[in-house]
């Protein structure tokens, strides 16, 4: 037990989790923004935008996240010398956020689209009938109802995103929790199982409130019909 507790003196576990929280926070915001635009493309009346939306979703959803983040580090950063900050670590951190955002945007798009499917066709027809064109109808009538119908699937995307933030290690963000876990295991192989359990428990604690919150919110905010 003493051995185990001494781990926390040598290694800053909360700081590593804080990196994952920051990665998740920024990636969630960007993924929501990009995913909303993609969903708009997919429900728009313009075929080329529909095609772009569908192609994006199918490419990013079907590519392993590890590959996307490794490409961010090896391709964008090392080979193409694209840097998002003067500081090396901040630059890698931001590139990881870009990768996480682009990947999860595909899932956000599909979650919102499932929300759009909960909105009866008559809502769009009524919006068009009073003279709203596509964008105002989407903004005022369709998306507000779609988001409220998509809270549970969006929550699932957020949960996946938080756990997937550990893949940022593949993008050389060494400070995040799975990177730290690897280091700890390397130096304290006597405590492999407690170390595993610590990180597993950390993520469970992070994620459980989100599940509870989205279940509650999806009930609370459901559109009465």
């Amino acid at each position: 037990m003493e051995n185990y507790l001494s781990l926390f003196e040598t290694y800053n576990v909360p700081a590593a989790f804080w990196v994952n929280i920051q990665l998740s926070f920024w990636a969630a915001i960007w993924a929501l923004a990009i995913g909303t635009v993609l969903a708009l493309f997919r429900i728009s009346p313009i075929p080329s935008l529909q095609l772009f939306g569908a192609a994006y979703v199918n490419i990013f959803r079907n590519t392993p996240l590890t590959i996307i983040l490794a490409f961010g580090f090896l391709g964008l950063f090392s080979v193409m010398q694209i840097s998002l900050a003067s500081d090396l670590n901040i630059s890698l951190f931001r590139i990881a956020i870009v990768g996480l955002s682009l990947y999860h945007a595909a899932f956000v798009c599909e979650a919102i689209r499932s929300g759009v499917n909960t909105v009866p066709l008559g809502q769009a027809e009524a919006a068009r009938a009073i003279g709203l064109s596509f964008l105002p109808a989407a903004r005022l009538i369709i998306l507000p109802q779609a988001f409220r119908g998509a809270i549970a699937p969006l929550g699932n995307v957020l949960i996946a995103l938080i756990k997937n933030s550990t893949v940022a290690a593949a993008g050389s963000v060494a400070t995040e929790s799975s990177g730290l876990m690897k280091t700890m295991i390397e130096f304290r192989s006597d405590l492999v199982i407690p170390i595993f359990l610590t990180f597993a428990l950390g993520f469970v604690i992070l994620v459980i409130p989100i599940g509870l919150l989205t279940t509650w919110a999806s009930r609370k905010l459901a559109v009465a019909r």
Partner: peptide, 25 residues
Amino acid sequence: AEGKALAKLRADVGMVFQSFNLFAH
């Protein structure tokens, strides 16, 4: 056929549906 001109014209034509279609939110 579509676009702003159609939206403008629709604004001049009132429509009442079988299933009401009031904006639910």
